[in-house]
Every structure is written in structure tokens, then in C-alpha cells.
């Protein structure tokens, strides 16, 4: 219960960061990707400041024996650069440029109760289910 409450607030802070930085405005995201057109570089600072903070905090936090509320670290271990990684990221980049939404901001934008983020999120979940289904036959090496 305590853990889930903590994770809830982590999500809430994340959403506030997305909103304040401009990530929940598709036209800003597309402006950021429009390097060859009317480029809006401001979103570069979002990645810049978030990475700067986490680059430092990550190293300090991992000096602990364990996290505060659980007993073990649960971090991604895969080190291989696979064709799935590249192909998947390329498909994601295409979708990101088309709608201006990535997964986090699309969920946060559901709170506007508008039709567009809802359509996007439902399609995103369908895309994930499609992957799950195809993966049964192909067994992607991710």
C-alpha cells in the first residue's frame, strides 16, 4: 500500500513535469522534431535537465544496499543492441512525429477528456496487443 502510494506520487510529479515543460502539447513536440523547418529547440532542455539530475542522483541512490521501500533493485539488464531495438525505436519515432504524442504525455492528456488523446491511447494499446500476438509466432529477440 505504502509502495503504491509512493509510486502514485512519482507518476503525479512526472505528469506535472510533462505539462510544465510543454511535452503535453503535440505542436511543441512536432516543432522540436521539425529541425529542417520552423525548429523549436526548447524541448531539448527537458531532456537536458532531466538527464543532468538523474545522471547524478542515479549514482548516489545506487550506493544504497536496497531501495527504501522494497528489498531489491529491479533494473533492466539487457545489454545487447538488437535489430528489434533499432526497428522498434524507428517505428516509435515515426508515430511520435505523426501525432506528437509519446506514451507518458498521451496518458496525462487523457485528463482533458478530449477525443484525440483517447483515440491515440486506445490505438497505442492496440499496437501493444498486436505486438503481443505477433510475438507468439515470431518470438522477437528484444
Amino acid at each position: 500500500m505504502k509502495n503504491n502510494l509512493a509510486v502514485f506520487f512519482v507518476g503525479l510529479i512526472f505528469a506535472l513535469g510533462l505539462g510544465i515543460s510543454g511535452m503535453t502539447r503535440p505542436e511543441k513536440v512536432i516543432g522540436f522534431l521539425d529541425v529542417f523547418g520552423n525548429w523549436d529547440p526548447s524541448l531539448m532542455f527537458v531532456m537536458g535537465s532531466s538527464i543532468l539530475i538523474h545522471l547524478i542522483s542515479y549514482r548516489i541512490i545506487l550506493k544504497r544496499q536496497s531501495p527504501l521501500l522494497t528489498s531489491t533493485w529491479n533494473l533492466p539488464q539487457n545489454k545487447n543492441i538488437t535489430s528489434s531495438l533499432i526497428a522498434g525505436s524507428a517505428l516509435f519515432g515515426m508515430g511520435w512525429g505523426l501525432a506528437g504524442y509519446c506514451p507518458g504525455p498521451s496518458i496525462t492528456s487523457l485528463a482533458t477528456f478530449q477525443f484525440q488523446p483517447l483515440i491515440f491511447v486506445l490505438s497505442m494499446i492496440s499496437g501493444m496487443l498486436l505486438f503481443k500476438w505477433i510475438d507468439k509466432f515470431i518470438k522477437f529477440k528484444r
Partner: peptide, 8 residues
């Protein structure tokens, strides 16, 4: 876009 982002 949603399908691409979800699958990708």
C-alpha cells in the same frame, strides 16, 4: 500513430 507508438 498510436499503433506505431504502441508496437514500436
Amino acid at each position: 500513430a498510436g499503433l506505431l507508438v504502441g508496437f514500436g
